[in-house]
Computed example of a mutant assay.
Amino acid sequence: MTDKPPWERRELTVGELSARSGVAVSALHFYEREGLIDARRTSGNQRRYRRDTLRRVALIRIAQRVGIPLADIGAALARLPEGRTPTAHDWAELSLAWRDELDERIHRLQQLRDDFDGCIGCGCLSLQRCALANPHDEYGGHGDGPRRLIET
């Protein structure tokens, strides 16, 4: 790339970005195709990423880990002025916007954890406990499939 040490460079190769972020090169290419990150191309058609792309990739990975769909992550990043990398303030706003959805997921997971050993949550009356949790098959009227675990 240049004679400068890596910490003085303004741009990273895809391999350097992969190594620093812990994200596979194929995933970085996917993020680029999806518009989550951008790269410029050198005259030799090699990708070069701004150093602040590391922060953007970190945000993507954190959001993915908690279950935020890539489409929602992309929509949130697209709202940033000029597609810039999120600041601490931006991250606070993004996480606040996702808080209700995450709280709902936490609630469902806790409910699943607490009911998993004794009830599959469908109102089928096939388990002995269902007669207590779902007397008269009340959940059956809501349609097929699990019902108890998705209601709040």
Rank of each mutant, 00 (worst) to 15 (best):
L28Y: 03
R129Q: 15
C124S: 15
I68D: 01
G35F: 06
A97T: 13
Q111G: 14
G83F: 06
R84D: 05
R113G: 09
R129N: 15
L54N: 09
R113M: 12
R41S: 11
D100G: 14
V66D: 06
W98I: 02
R99G: 14
L28T: 03
E8V: 01
P6K: 04
D114I: 02
D103W: 05
A75I: 03
H29I: 00
S18D: 06
E93D: 08
V57K: 01
R10N: 11
C119N: 06
S43K: 15
V57W: 01
S43F: 04
D114F: 05
D90Y: 02
Q64E: 13
A76F: 00
L54I: 07
R33N: 15
E16N: 08
Y139M: 12
P86S: 01
D38L: 00
L127I: 07
F116A: 15
Q64C: 01
L54K: 04
I106K: 10
L102K: 02
A78W: 07
L94N: 06
D52S: 11
G22C: 09
S43P: 00
R51T: 03
Q128D: 14
L54E: 12
P5Y: 10
G118D: 10
G22W: 03
R79M: 07
E11F: 13
L102G: 04
S126E: 15
D52A: 10
G121L: 05
L132Y: 09
V66L: 12
W7Q: 15
D114V: 00
I106V: 12
D103Y: 05
R33G: 14
L59I: 08
A78L: 09
G74A: 02
Q110W: 01
E34F: 01
W91F: 04
H107I: 02
V23R: 05
A92N: 04
D137F: 05
W91A: 13
L109K: 07
A71Q: 12
R41P: 02
E82P: 00
D100K: 10
L127M: 14
V23L: 00
L109F: 13
H29V: 00
G118I: 10
Q64H: 02
R47K: 14
E82H: 07
P5N: 06
R20S: 08
G123H: 08
R84S: 01
S18C: 01
A133G: 10
V57H: 03
S43V: 02
G140S: 08
L17E: 09
G67T: 05
A131G: 14
L112E: 11
L70I: 07
R61L: 04
D90N: 09
E16P: 01
R99Y: 13
E11S: 11
P135F: 04
E93I: 00
A76C: 10
G35S: 08
Q128W: 13
D117K: 09
R40Q: 10
W98L: 09
L94V: 08
